[in-house]
């Protein structure tokens, strides 16, 4: 098990390096930020000075080396626009993203697990069919469009929730549902098929043979096994919310990291784009690693495996 985990950790590190490289070279290869910062009439000399100041006059490999070194000491440089350290910008926005991801995950588990359980136990019932339609729709619905439709119905027409921004509980309902619908559908399908598999197993039959009450058979013997993939999946989803929050944050004007990245793309504030993508990717990759560790730990069979 340790060998496996160490291998996974190394792989995570490699993936991170790939992300760093992609981000670095792409932002350097595209337009020169100096043109954006300076007046069109700025002199050649002014441009040179600024390039030097930003370290843009050094050869690309050297820039890359410096860049990677700086990342490892946590220095992402300053925002080109505000001149404030990039880390400050990131820290300002990160809590909102984490908050949204957390609530969305909670919501999807709350919807997905009971519905999936019910679907499996009452296979073929009306509610099972309805739940499966809900799931298939959820997996086919463009999230940004769903968000807008929710705004149209619940904010514009009914006036129940605000259309955007961050603040009280009422602000987070629509974005969390938008972010969570797809995943609750995925969790539902996962729970359902995991539970169906469990229900067909010998140990469920054996539990019934012991004369246990059906509720105990389902919740104690069934759910515990079906939940193993579901729990890890839910954590993985949370991680993915972080990686993909750009869309929902844009739709709901949610002041998170994803939106900061998108804004910075339009203003060509590359240090922020780079740092934002790196932070989200790092969270995403480390989160996935954590999921693997969690899974190995939760599964007694793997936990006790030597080698």
């Amino acid at each position: 098990m340790w060998r496996y985990l160490i291998g996974r950790a190394l792989q995570t590190l490699l993936s991170m390096l790939v992300v760093i490289s992609i981000v670095f070279f792409l932002t350097r290869l595209s337009g020169n930020p100096v043109h954006l910062l300076l007046d069109v009439n700025a002199s050649e000399r002014d441009q040179q000075i600024l390039m030097h100041h930003l370290g843009l006059d050094k050869p690309l490999p050297v820039q890359y080396g410096i860049y990677v070194m700086n990342i490892f000491v946590g220095d992402f440089g300053n925002s080109v626009l505000t001149r404030r350290p990039v880390t400050e910008h990131i820290w300002e926005r990160l809590p909102a993203t984490v908050e949204l991801g957390f609530v969305a995950m909670f919501l999807s588990v709350l919807i997905g697990v009971p519905l999936g359980m019910y679907s499996a136990v009452h296979r073929g019932s009306m509610l099972d069919s309805a739940a499966r339609v809900f799931a298939v729709l959820g997996q086919s619905m463009p999230a940004f469009w769903l968000g807008l439709m929710l705004i149209l119905i619940f904010a514009v027409v009914l006036g129940l929730f605000p259309a955007g921004g961050r603040g009280g509980v009422e602000n987070i309902v629509l974005p969390a549902f938008t972010l969570g619908y797809f995943t609750s559908a995925a969790i539902l399908r996962l729970t359902r098929s995991a539970m169906l598999e469990v229900l067909g197993s010998d140990y469920i039959k054996f539990a019934r043979l012991k004369g246990l009450h059906e509720q105990i058979v389902l919740w104690k013997h069934g759910l515990k096994n079906a939940l193993l993939p579901v729990v890890t999946f839910a954590v993985m989803l949370f991680v993915q919310f972080l990686g993909g929050a750009v869309v929902t944050e844009t739709v709901f004007a949610w002041p998170g990291l994803g939106r900061l990245i998108l804004e910075s793309i339009t203003t060509r504030d590359y240090p922020i784009v780079q740092a934002g993508v790196l932070v989200l990717s790092a969270l995403y990759l480390v989160g996935n690693l954590f999921v693997d560790v969690l899974y190995s730990y939760l599964n007694p069979r793997i936990r006790h495996a030597r080698a």
């Binding site: 496996y4 999230a143 940004f144 995925a186 399908r189 579901v230 993915q240 993909g244 929050a245 793997i302």
Partner: peptide, 23 residues
Amino acid sequence: ETEPAAIEPVPEARPRGAAAGAD
């Protein structure tokens, strides 16, 4: 998938069976 970047394929150690439910 749109938003949650993808139900990225999972390493072998995890049961893929269920992921997104091919039941």
